[in-house]
């Protein structure tokens, strides 16, 4: 039986879907009104989604981070929240075109996953570390999603500029590159502390070993190694622009692969 929070999930789903449609039209026809409506819908969808998450928390009696549906929902929630911050900071509505795309990918993924609520968490999940580990990892991955979105914009703009044309709606290449780096800089420490450190400490508390080479652990390690490489290439080798954008997109693709890897690989992290 579906719990009542799922109704709110669907409200946000339709808001995000419509928002993406409006943003696409905005991008195509460059009518400001479409962009404003897209932004409004994206932010409007955030309200039922927040209510849904809180309601699910109340109904199930535990933080809603215990299965893939819940995790994908929280990740998309985080991406919309980051968009709100970016909007306040840079006032560039156009970023919404790509953020809404990433949000749509996440929320469509969530919509396809089983939404049953587990009132009883398996004993291993009954720990405060669940909240720390999963929320920080989702926040980190949400920031990587933003980095991916602006990187797509960067590649499009720079490709057009090479053909002596421009996408004027987009922020400058420098700014896009800077947001890409900033988003990774926000995501990386959160991911390191949340996904890896908090996860390892929790594993130590629950099973007596910090690291067990579980598929998801290895997946997270690969993502971490990848973004570590990104930061070193950027800070030491001055890899910027196109190269940094490609790395950022590849990093997020890996993040998504690791997320869906649960379905085929199982292991300690496959909780429905």
């Amino acid at each position: 039986m579906q719990s009542s929070d799922v109704v709110f999930f669907w409200y946000s789903f339709w808001c995000y879907l419509l928002s993406f449609g409006l943003f696409t039209l905005y991008f195509a026809f460059k009518k400001r009104l479409l962009g404003t409506l897209g932004t409004a819908l994206l932010l409007l969808g955030f309200i039922p989604q927040t209510i849904g998450i809180i309601l699910r928390w109340k109904l199930s009696g535990h933080a809603p981070f215990s299965n893939m549906f819940e995790y994908a929902t929280v990740m998309s929630w985080m991406a919309v929240l980051s968009f709100a911050f970016l909007l306040l900071r840079f006032r560039k509505m156009i970023i919404g075109v790509f953020v809404s795309f990433v949000v749509l990918v996440l929320i469509v993924s969530a919509s396809l996953l089983p939404k049953e609520m587990h009132q009883q968490l398996v004993p291993a999940l009954q720990s405060n570390w669940l909240k720390i580990h999963v929320s920080l990892a989702a926040l980190g991955e949400g920031a990587f999603a933003i980095a991916c979105a602006v990187s797509i914009m960067y590649l499009l703009k720079s490709a057009m500029q090479r053909r002596s044309r421009d996408i004027r709606m987009f922020p400058s290449l420098e700014l896009l590159d800077d947001i890409n780096y900033k988003a990774v800089s926000i995501g990386y420490p959160l991911f390191t502390l949340g996904a890896l450190f908090a996860g390892a400490i929790w594993a130590y508390k629950a099973w007596g070993t910090f690291w067990g080479w579980d598929p998801k652990e290895v997946g997270s390690l690969i993502i971490w190694l990848f973004y570590t490489g990104y930061l070193h290439a950027r800070l030491q080798r001055n890899w910027k622009g196109n190269r940094a954008a490609v790395l950022s997109i590849a990093g997020f693709v890996m993040t998504m692969l690791s997320f869906f890897g649960n379905i085929f690989l199982g292991g300690q992290h496959s909780y429905g």
Partner: peptide, 16 residues
């Protein structure tokens, strides 16, 4: 360093 990081990541994927 970057080569070792890439090899480690690739090897881990193959191992999975």
């Amino acid at each position: 360093t970057i080569i070792v990081l890439i090899v480690l990541a690739a090897a881990s994927i193959l191992v999975i």
